[in-house]
Amino acid sequence: MADVLGNFEQAVLLAVVRLDDAAYGRAILKEVQMRLDREVAAGAVHATLTRLEQKGFLISRLGPGTEVRAGRPRRFYSLSTAGRRALNDARAVVDKLWRGFRWPLKGYL
């Protein structure tokens, strides 16, 4: 396991997976906000997308702009093989940590 993903990185990668062909900056931001149930700064999502792309977990391509964006293009993201592997690893770590426990833990929820 070369690189352990943080929670926010996982949220962004999973948003990209969920949105599939429609995974561009604003849509990812809204998806992450909805899943985490809190306001998220656009800068935080943008910085994470850039970092994940630099790590090779995401691939991006430009798409056409629309009138509401004043013609500015969209950057669409998709998961790379390394990104899929990283997400699977992250899930495996959590599963391993929880093995042997029943959820929710008694007396806490």
């Binding site: 900056g25 604003r26 656009a42 943008h46 509401v68 964006r69 004043a70 500015r72 293009p73 969209r74």
Partner: peptide
């Protein structure tokens, strides 16, 4: 590389 795309994302969210 992000100048148009990120400012476009924010403008879209602002307007819509």
């Amino acid at each position: 590389r992000d100048r148009q795309t990120v400012s476009g994302d924010l403008l879209e969210e602002y307007r819509e």
